[in-house]
Design a protein around this nucleic acid. Structure first.
Lengths: 107, 107
DNA sequence: ATTTATTATCGTAATATTGCAATATTACAT
DNA sequence: ATGTAATATTGCAATATTACGATAATAAAT
């Protein structure tokens, strides 16, 4: 197998898991931290900062972008990756709701 | 490859990723929700509740247990899986610290 | 001791993820 | 138009994850 049986879970549960997956790789956590620290939203420096190849970083950025966490001006030579703070906040709230609801029910 | 290069990241970052991985599968999210709802902390019912086989559930429980999220009396026939609420709270705090710190830095 | 009920482990197949080299694309500058 | 600099995509190899059937292990009850 190897594939998760997504159809047997509720949408809420699948959403939590999908979002958690973005944070489930250290490179992506490191990228998020790094781009949030950069005032001017630097770009290829991510490759230098983290010890991975450019294609690998690009791949991770795509995953981060797929949940709407990137914001920036994408203009050829001078790209600019920024953290979408509003979306970031939404995901934090999503997690907290899950944690709080689960705690509330507990014995 | 397929293996993450854990040695190039800080411990903090690896910890966030490792914890997120636990929540990155819908079965584990569903299991956590379910065991928190059960007052009497029932066990094999998880298999009936979620639509997966007993070995698969057992495997997921192991992953959940590895981050210390399980608490219970493990006595042969009448096992009892409980959510370790204290640890659950710790992980929530861990996530929130990451989110808050990252937001704080942001441009 | 044997049965019974419950969970864990092993072995295996299928799919997913990670990472990189090579190449393609894009947009700016000359 | 050509070159350059930066990122994206493709293709591939290695490892990880997911899932299940078969089997083992454990403890209670008879």
């Amino acid at each position: 197998m190897g594939a998760s049986k997504l159809d047997i879970y509720s949408n809420d549960i699948n959403q939590i898991a999908a979002v958690a997956k973005v944070f489930a790789h250290p490179a992506r956590v490191a990228i998020l931290q790094y781009i949030s620290k950069q005032e001017a939203c630097i770009c290829n420096d991510i490759v230098d900062e983290i010890g991975l190849s450019q294609p690998t970083i690009s791949q991770h950025l795509k995953v981060i972008n797929n949940v709407g966490l990137l914001k920036g001006t994408f203009e050829g030579k001078s790209l600019c990756y920024c953290l979408n703070v509003k979306r970031f906040q939404e995901l934090q709230t999503l997690f907290n709701q899950f944690f709080n609801q689960t705690k509330l029910n507990c014995c």
